[in-house]
């Protein structure tokens, strides 16, 4: 689409939307948000870029093909589900650990974060696969 206003706006919107998607993704642990919404926002941001430039330009921006995103996302989610099996716990049981980092202080992280990251990748990948296919028709 050839619109100067949209093109200029996207230049600012793209990083903002991507940041918002990461915010939503991390916030999803205890509050509304999560990998699915985060992935949708990320997919939407890149779709906006693809609409103003071209699908090819957007593909170059993402580098990874949508299919790779979907595959690796599924692998991440599956891995987080299988991890507890090695500790003798049932499939998909959440494993938690607390680590202390210099910047963020004490962090409570576990396999659900990994699972959500998988969802994030899959949703972004699926959205981009749709958008790219439609734009390249």
């Amino acid at each position: 689409m050839d619109s100067v206003i949209l093109k200029t706006a996207v230049r600012f919107l793209l990083p903002l939307l991507l940041l918002a998607s990461i915010f939503l993704f991390l916030r999803g642990h205890n509050e509304p948000g999560g990998g699915f919404v985060g992935g949708l926002v990320a997919g939407g941001a890149i779709a906006l870029y693809a609409i103003t430039r071209s699908a090819a330009a957007a593909r170059q921006l993402v580098r990874a093909s949508p299919r790779l995103l979907i595959g690796s996302g599924l692998l991440l989610a599956l891995g987080s589900g299988l991890a507890p099996l090695f500790f003798g716990r049932p499939f998909l049981t959440a494993l938690w650990t607390t680590t202390t980092t210099a910047v963020l202080g004490e962090l409570h992280i576990g396999t659900p974060l990994l699972f959500d990251l998988g969802v994030y990748c899959v949703v972004t990948g699926v959205t981009l696969a749709f958008v790219f296919t439609l734009l390249e028709e």
Binding site: R67, L68, I70, G71, S72, L74, L75, L78
Partner: peptide
Amino acid sequence: ATMTVLLL
């Protein structure tokens, strides 16, 4: 798992 590998 097989499906994921097939996707990749």
